[in-house]
Amino acid sequence: MNRYGRAGVALVLALAVTACTGNPAPRTGRDRPEGQTSSAGSPDSGTVRFYVDSEGAAAQEAGRLQREGKAEEAALVRRIADRPNAVWIGDPDPLARVADITEKARRAGQVPVLVAYHIPDRDCGQFSAGGAASPDEYRAWIGRFAEGLGGRPAWVVLEPDALAHVLDNCTRGGKAAERLDLLRGAVETLKRQPGARVYLDAGNAGWIRNPDEWIDPMRRAGIDRADGFAFNVSNFFTTEESVAIAGRLSEGLGGTPYVIDTSRNGNGPLRGAQGDDAWCNPAGRALGAEPTTRTGHERVDAFLWVKRPGESDGECHRGEPGAGQWFHAYALDLARNAR
């Protein structure tokens, strides 16, 4: 998921030095004291306490390593397990899992980050293929997802890659219009829940040649009804590179806020890599900035770990674990390489 697309790293670096430095009206409250939160988990109220998944793959692995006396490896994996990671939801019926996670988070005084990931023809049939079998099935699925949220607070990242695959022609013809309609409907359905903040995925700095080309599709996909967009999901571009491109996209949308996936961007992308090597478990990467709403950027609502560090991007033609499966050696490298 979240390949570089056709854009080159040279373009990203060029845009980085010409990033927007204007001062739009503040949309968030990242510089307020720690500990001020609201029931809806809004960044306007200060630093949000995001949900830490104590039952995820990283937590289970850390426990196993500790029991086996591998204290050094356990400590490295704890650098992942003890931080807030998003929970990806692609279950055939999402209601029970969404309700369970949001209720656990509510009891802990935390706000979960959930990834809705079930769009028809998901990932264009590649490593993360799957999703709903039809538009009607997807609409029903989103309805169940929203029902699972109830009134509990949650941040939802909506359908990584779905919009980008419209822009790179993976989703063609009438299917493109259909997908944009599904995304808009999903935003509207989720936003009927009072505790939901919704961020429409908008690709990454390597996928966008010209941010202006994304404005109309994003509006058709419901960005006007969402709380903002998500950027760099499952990719490795640095925060500076992401802000350079996402900032221009935000400006074109009238100052729309956004969140950045910093889970594995500590060393940036693997420069010079091509094809799958660039985005699928590239070597030498590192954990990035920990999840927080104190980003130092007016339009950046949060740094989030949307991609769960240590879980594979896919088999990558090298015998690696399948997409979403725990990749122990890779997890250790991400933690070791982190600053």
Rank of each mutant, 00 (worst) to 15 (best):
D227Y: 01
A75V: 00
V166Q: 03
G268D: 08
R220W: 00
E73G: 05
P84C: 00
K104V: 05
P33W: 02
S45E: 05
T28N: 13
V87L: 15
A96D: 15
L190S: 04
L270S: 14
G266H: 03
A164M: 13
R209S: 13
A186R: 02
A246H: 04
K104W: 03
T238C: 06
A105F: 08
A81I: 05
A7F: 03
T293D: 06
L200Y: 05
Y258P: 15
Q126E: 13
T292C: 03
R264A: 04
G185D: 09
A105S: 13
N204Y: 01
L76S: 11
L249V: 04
A283G: 11
A133D: 14
T102S: 05
G296P: 15
G203D: 07
L163W: 01
A196C: 09
G109I: 12
G268N: 06
A146I: 06
V187L: 11
N265A: 10
R49G: 02
V111P: 12
E320L: 15
H328Q: 07
K104G: 11
Y258D: 08
Q110T: 14
N23T: 15
G310A: 13
A81P: 06
A162N: 05
A196F: 00
S263R: 07
Y330Q: 09
G22N: 12
K175S: 13
E61S: 14
V259D: 06
A10P: 05
I80M: 04
D261L: 02
Y199F: 15
L180F: 02
R139D: 00
R49E: 07
P321R: 08
G5R: 07
L76P: 09
R64W: 01
G22R: 12
L304M: 07
L249N: 00
G206M: 07
G310C: 03
V259L: 01
V233K: 02
F231T: 12
A108W: 04
G222E: 03
L253V: 15
E311M: 07
D212G: 10
W214V: 06
I223C: 09
T295E: 10
V166G: 00
E159A: 08
E178R: 05
G272R: 14
I142R: 00
D227S: 14
A196R: 01
L11W: 12
L149T: 10
V156C: 09
R318D: 04
W88F: 01
G228L: 07
D123K: 06
T256G: 01
V306Y: 00
H118L: 04
D201I: 12
E315M: 08
R27D: 03
A62F: 02
R197D: 03
G185A: 12
E72L: 13
V17D: 09
K70G: 06
R144S: 14
P194Y: 03
G255N: 13
E55L: 14
L332W: 04
